[in-house]
Design a protein around this nucleic acid. Structure first.
Lengths: 376, 376
DNA sequence: TTGAAAGCGCTAACAT
DNA sequence: ATGTTAGCGCTTTCAA
C-alpha cells in the first residue's frame, strides 16, 4: 500500500502531476499554455493529461481566476411585442391589444407569452446566430436569459453578481427598459443592442435607422410612387421612431409633407391591421413602407385580399431583410439590417472590455443597405 | 486598527458572518434555507446579508457541491436542413443542394450556415421557449450550444466534463448523430428531443408522428379529396420517415395505395420545389399533406402561382402548428406538435435525473392533434 | 525553469 | 442549534 491507486472522481491536476512526475504547478502551466516550461516536460505532461483523461474543473478555475468564460445573452423587452412588460411603470404603451401578462407562469407549456413571442420574430434567432458565431471560436457560450419583469431583471443582475457569467449582452427593444441601468449601476460589464432610450454609460451597437428609412423612401419615389403611406413600428421604441423620422423627412424633402401612417407593433398581425386601416382611408395609395419585414408581409396579405397587386398596384418595402422577406410572395424589397454582424460586434465589444484592453464606452453604428426584390 | 474595515472585492460569507456576529456555517445555512436555525439568528443574518449586499459566489459553491445549476441546450443537426453536417460519415443524405460547409468560420457574420439555418425554423425558438419556461422558475438557465461538426461535438462533451453544466438537452434531428452516444458514453446526463436513430440508453421525448399523419390523411379524405399527394420531410430522419409511413398507411387503408410524393427538407424553399414537381406530374391533384408547416407554406405559394385556389381547388395540410401556420394565407390546417410542452418535459426529465430520483431511461411520447384552419 | 504553499469562497462533516 | 474545521481543484506568488 504505497499510494492510493485509483482516484475517486474525475482526474485532477494532482493525478496528472503524479503521473507525469512533476508538480501541480507545472501541469497547470502546461495546460494553460504558460511559457517557460521545458519542452521535454511539456511533452510528458501532455502525455499524462491524455493518459488520465484530465479535464480542468471550471469551478475551481473560476474560483481563483474570477472569470467564468460564460456570458449572458439577455432578451429584455420583445422586439416583436413590447407589451409583454409587467409592473414596471414607465413607457407609454402605444395602443395595442397585448395579451394579459402574468409574470408567474405554470411549468413549461406555451405559457409565457414573452418568451414565446420573442422567437416569433426572426430577429432574435439572428442575434443568437451572430453571438454564437463570435463566441464559439473563443470557447465561450451564451447563457440565454429573459428579463421582462422586474423580478426577472433582478435575477439577471443576481446571476451576474454571483459570477455565473462575466458580462451581459443585452437586447433591449423596449423603450424604458431599466435593465441596462441596473447592470451598469452594479458595476457589471454589458453591451447593448440598440441605443438605450435613457442615456446610459454603456457601450452599444446600433443601426443608422434613419438612413435605412431614407433608402426606402428614395426607392419608392424613384419607382414613381406618389401616394405613399407607412406602417410604423411601435413609436415608444427608438427604432420605431427613427425609421419613421427618416422616412418622413425624406418624403417631406421630396415634396410630400403629408404622410399617412398607421402604427404597428413589429408583428405580422399588426401589419395587417395597419394596412387595412391605411387602405380604408387611402384607397388610392401606391406605395407602402413598413418598418419591418413582418409587418410588410402582413401588408402584402391584406393588399392582395383587397385586390391590389404587389408591386404593380402598390409597391411595398420592408425593413430588416429577415427570413420573412425571402419567404414572402413576392419576395420583399427591404432595407437590410446586418443583425448577425451587429450581434458579433456586440460580443466583440464585451470581450474587449472583459480583457481590460478597452474600458471606454463605445458605440458602433452600422449602415443599412437596400435589397431590391420583387415587392417594390 | 482593530480590524480591516473594508473587504476588498464583493462581500463573502465571512463578511456577513462578522456583521451578524455568527459563524460562516450559520450564514451558509440561512442562505441555503437549511432548517435548524434559530429564527432570531435567521433574521439577523438576513439583515446582515442585506446590509452587506452579499451574493453567494457560484464558483465556490459549485466547487464543493459539484453542481453548477446550468444545463446545456445543444442543437445537433438542423431540423430545417440536415445537410449542414461536416465530416462524420454515416447517414445517407437525400439528394439536396446543401451549401458547402467549412467548420472553421471567420468571426461573426452570417458565416456559419448551420447556426443561421437553425433559427430559420420556428421549431427551435419553441424548444428554447419551452426549456426556458421550465428552467427559469428553478433558477436555472440554458447554455446554448451547437454541435454540427465532430469538433463541435467534442467541445460539447468537454464542456460537460469540465462541469460547466450539469447535463445536456439535445435536439438532434439529424439521423446518425453521434452526439447522444458520445455523451452517454462519457457518463454524462442527457435527454433527447426525438428518438435516437440508433438505439441508445438515453431518455427522450417524442411525438407520435404516425398518429399525426393519420389525422392529416383522415381530414383530407373526409373533406372529399381523392387525388392526394404528399411532400415528405427528409427521409433519413425518423420524423420524416414516420410522418410518411403514417400518412401512406392511412391512405392505403382508405383505398389509395398509390401516393404521389416528393421529398423536401423541411424548408419553405424545398416545399416549393416539391410542390412544383408534384403539380407538373399530377395537375389534377386536390389535396396535399406537407410534413411540416414551412413546406406547406411553400406549397401554398406555388399552388397559387399555378392558379389553384387553396382550399377550394387543392386542400393543404401542414404539420407542427408553428407560427408559419397562422402567418400563412389562408392559415394552415395543420397537425399540432406541442413543442413547448415537449421541451419542458425534456427539461423535467433531465432535472429529475440530476436530482437522482430517477436514474431509469424513460421516453415520453406526446400525442398530436389536428388544428383546422383555412387551408383544408 | 520548477516546486512549495497559500488561498479563492463555499459546504458539510463533525463536534459541541 | 451553532461553531470548528477540512477540504473542493485550481492558479499564482514566492523561493529555490
Amino acid at each position: 500500500m504505497t499510494e492510493d491507486p485509483r482516484p475517486a472522481g474525475s482526474p485532477t491536476l494532482e493525478d496528472v502531476a503524479r503521473a507525469a512526475g512533476v508538480s501541480r504547478a507545472t501541469v497547470s502551466r502546461v495546460v494553460n499554455g504558460v511559457r517557460n516550461v521545458d519542452p521535454v516536460i511539456q511533452e510528458s505532461v501532455r502525455k499524462a493529461v491524455a493518459a488520465t483523461g484530465y479535464t480542468p474543473n471550471r469551478a475551481a478555475r473560476s474560483l481563483v481566476t474570477r472569470r467564468t468564460d460564460a456570458i449572458a445573452l439577455v432578451v429584455s423587452g420583445a422586439g416583436a411585442d413590447p407589451t409583454a412588460e409587467g409592473e414596471t411603470g414607465g413607457g407609454h404603451r402605444a395602443g395595442s391589444a397585448g395579451a394579459a401578462h402574468e409574470p408567474e407562469e405554470p411549468d413549461g407549456g406555451a405559457g409565457s407569452s414573452f418568451t414565446a413571442q420573442v422567437f416569433a420574430d426572426p430577429f432574435f434567432g439572428r442575434v443568437v446566430t451572430g453571438v454564437v458565431n463570435y463566441l464559439r471560436p473563443r470557447g465561450m457560450y451564451p447563457v440565454l436569459m429573459f428579463a421582462e419583469t422586474s423580478r426577472a431583471r433582478d435575477e439577471v443582475v443576481a446571476y451576474l453578481r454571483q459570477g455565473s457569467a462575466d458580462g451581459a449582452l443585452v437586447v433591449s427593444t423596449h423603450a424604458d427598459d431599466p435593465l441596462p441601468a441596473l447592470i451598469t449601476d452594479a458595476g457589471l460589464p454589458a453591451v447593448l443592442y440598440a441605443r438605450p432610450s435613457r442615456p446610459t454609460r454603456i457601450s452599444y451597437v446600433d443601426l443608422a435607422h434613419q438612413d435605412g428609412a431614407r433608402l426606402a423612401a428614395e426607392h419608392l419615389l424613384a419607382r414613381g410612387c406618389r401616394r405613399i403611406a407607412t406602417i410604423t413600428g411601435p413609436l415608444d421604441v427608438p427604432a420605431g421612431q427613427d425609421r419613421l423620422a427618416g422616412f418622413r423627412d425624406t418624403m417631406a424633402r421630396a415634396g410630400q409633407p403629408y404622410l399617412p401612417l398607421a402604427e404597428g407593433r413589429f408583428t405580422q398581425e399588426s401589419g395587417e391591421t395597419a394596412m387595412a386601416r391605411l387602405l380604408a382611408e387611402h384607397p388610392d395609395l401606391d406605395g407602402v413602407f413598413a418598418a419591418n419585414d413582418l409587418m410588410a408581409v402582413g401588408a402584402c396579405h391584406v393588399l392582395r385580399e383587397h385586390g391590389r397587386r404587389v408591386p404593380e398596384d402598390v409597391a411595398v418595402v420592408g425593413f430588416d431583410d429577415s427570413s420573412a422577406a425571402v419567404a414572402c410572395r413576392p419576395p420583399l424589397t427591404t432595407v437590410r439590417q446586418p443583425v448577425e454582424e451587429m450581434a458579433a460586434e456586440m460580443a466583440r465589444l464585451l470581450l474587449d472590455r472583459l480583457a481590460g484592453s478597452d474600458r471606454a464606452v463605445t458605440s458602433v453604428i452600422f449602415e443599412p443597405s437596400l435589397v431590391v426584390r420583387g415587392s417594390a
